[in-house]
Amino acid sequence: MVLDVPAHQRRSMGRLLGLIGAAGILLLILTPAGYADFFLFLAFYILLSAGAALCIGFTSHRFRLKRGPVDVEPFDYAPWLGVAALVTGTTITSFLMFKQFVMPPRGFPLDPALAAFDRWLFLGRDPWMVTHSLIGGWQAAKLLDIFYTQCWFILMYCFPAIAIALAKSYEIRLRLVSCWLASWILIGSVAAWILGSAGPCYYNALVGPDANFALLNQRLAELGRSAEAAGVTIHTLGYQPQLLSTFLNPRLEAVGGISAMPSMHVAMAALFAIGGFQIRRWLGWVMTGFAIAIWIGSIHFGWHYASDGVVGAAMMVALWKATALLTRARPAPRPDYR
């Protein structure tokens, strides 16, 4: 049975699409990103997210048919999954424009303070020295690389569709998708611009000379060579020079942009944990472990200072609590889950 989409849900869909649509148009007008490149990336990411939403929606629907009635408020999947595809594709394209064209002129004034705070926090040592002393082999680096690149990217990209397919009520669905969207704007863009910083792996190239971070880059290069000797590629190490090249020669690319504080990787992983707890308690704890692994990886590879992840996760928790205001006025859902 296909359910009609209630008016309050249609309004929510419209607000989500209107918010990211307005941000995309503004960035297209204000940045030197070409219209052809913008619409090419937009079409690609929307098609990719539409395919992911279709697969997730179909799999979830088949599972529920096989399992029978579950504790999920009934709703029409199709329009919500369509909104997820549009929001995801437009958000990623807009974020790439912001990070690659708006962030570079900001510069990186806070790196010295963040580096000093990390050293104070870790009793005079850089956090990366601690992780490399505990898990210094290429095998551990490869495991963190899988979490940090492949697993994180898939979960990040599919999260809106997963939230829509698995959330137990309209309220939870709206809050999770709203958090995902708002985090790119408020954490990944606004806060990143205010807290302009490059991160340890780019310190010597973009901020100034620092012996400890030069040693970090040497250590990462050694890890990469050790992995290659074993026939293994640590992908995140290949992204670092690629992002630097794009930063020095601004152009719209699928991978580009440099900013450290706050960490969107950790912030998004915190949202995975929040979403996990809304579905199943055990899943929330698994995703909490994943978020900790992402935080460690962000330090281990020199992408972020330790404080970047703490601030990113705290901001995401604050966003989650703030989204409760979006649904407070809505009447309680019907208890009939037929």
Rank of each mutant, 00 (worst) to 15 (best):
Met1Val: 05
Val5Tyr: 10
His8Ile: 09
Arg10Trp: 12
Arg11Asp: 09
Arg15Phe: 13
Leu17Val: 10
Ile20Asn: 05
Ile20Tyr: 03
Ala22Gln: 06
Ala23Arg: 04
Ala23Cys: 15
Ala23Asn: 13
Leu26Ile: 15
Leu27Tyr: 14
Leu28Val: 04
Thr31Met: 04
Ala33Phe: 07
Gly34Tyr: 05
Leu40Cys: 05
Phe41Gly: 04
Phe41Cys: 02
Tyr45Asn: 15
Ile46Trp: 02
Leu47Ser: 15
Leu47Thr: 14
Ser49Phe: 08
Ser49Val: 04
Ile56Tyr: 02
Ile56Ser: 01
Ile56Thr: 01
Phe58Asn: 05
Phe63Gly: 11
Val72Asp: 13
Val87Pro: 00
Thr90Trp: 06
Thr93Leu: 11
Ser94Thr: 15
Phe95Ser: 13
Leu96Lys: 09
Lys99Gln: 08
Gln100Gly: 00
Gln100Arg: 00
Phe101Thr: 03
Pro104Val: 11
Arg106Glu: 06
Gly107Gln: 02
Asp111Ser: 12
Pro112Phe: 13
Leu123Thr: 07
Gly124Ser: 08
Arg125Lys: 11
Val130Asp: 02
Ser133Lys: 09
Ile135Gly: 08
Gly136Gln: 01
Gly136Met: 00
Gly137Trp: 01
Ala140Pro: 01
Leu143Thr: 12
Leu143Ile: 11
Leu144Cys: 10
Leu144Val: 02
Ile146Glu: 02
Phe147His: 12
Tyr148Gln: 09
Gln150His: 11
Phe153Gly: 04
Cys158Asp: 00
Phe159Thr: 08
Ile164Glu: 02
Ala165Ile: 05
Leu166Arg: 07
Lys168Ala: 05
Ser169His: 12
Leu174Cys: 00
Val177Thr: 03
Trp180Ala: 01
Ser183Ile: 07
Leu186Gly: 05
Ile187Cys: 07
Ala192Ser: 12
Gly196Asp: 00
Pro200His: 02
Cys201Leu: 14
Cys201Gln: 13
Tyr202Cys: 12
Asn204Gln: 14
Asn204Phe: 09
Ala205Met: 11
Ala205Gln: 14
Ala205Gly: 10
Leu206Met: 10
Val207Trp: 03
Gly208Arg: 13
Arg219Thr: 15
Arg219Tyr: 11
Ser226Phe: 06
Val232Leu: 13
Val232Phe: 14
Thr233Arg: 12
Ile234Pro: 05
His235Arg: 08
Leu237Asn: 07
Leu237Asp: 09
Tyr239Met: 10
Gln240Trp: 04
Gln240Asn: 07
Leu244Glu: 00
Leu244Cys: 02
Thr246Asp: 04
Leu248Asn: 15
Leu248Cys: 12
Pro250Thr: 09
Ala254Val: 15
Met261Ile: 06
His265Lys: 12
Ala269Val: 13
Ala273Arg: 04
Ile274Trp: 00
Ile274Lys: 00
Ile279His: 08
Ile279Gln: 08
Arg281Tyr: 06
Trp282Gln: 12
Gly284Tyr: 00
Trp285His: 04
Val286Tyr: 10
Val286Asp: 01
Gly289Leu: 07
Phe290Met: 14
Ile294Lys: 14
Gly297Cys: 14
Gly297Gln: 11
His300Ala: 07
Phe301Ile: 08
Gly302Pro: 06
Gly302Val: 13
Ala306Ile: 09
Ser307Ile: 15
Val310Met: 06
Val311Asp: 01
Ala314Lys: 10
Ala318Met: 15
Leu325Glu: 08
Thr327Pro: 08
Arg330Leu: 13
Ala332Thr: 14
Pro333Met: 04
Asp336Leu: 03
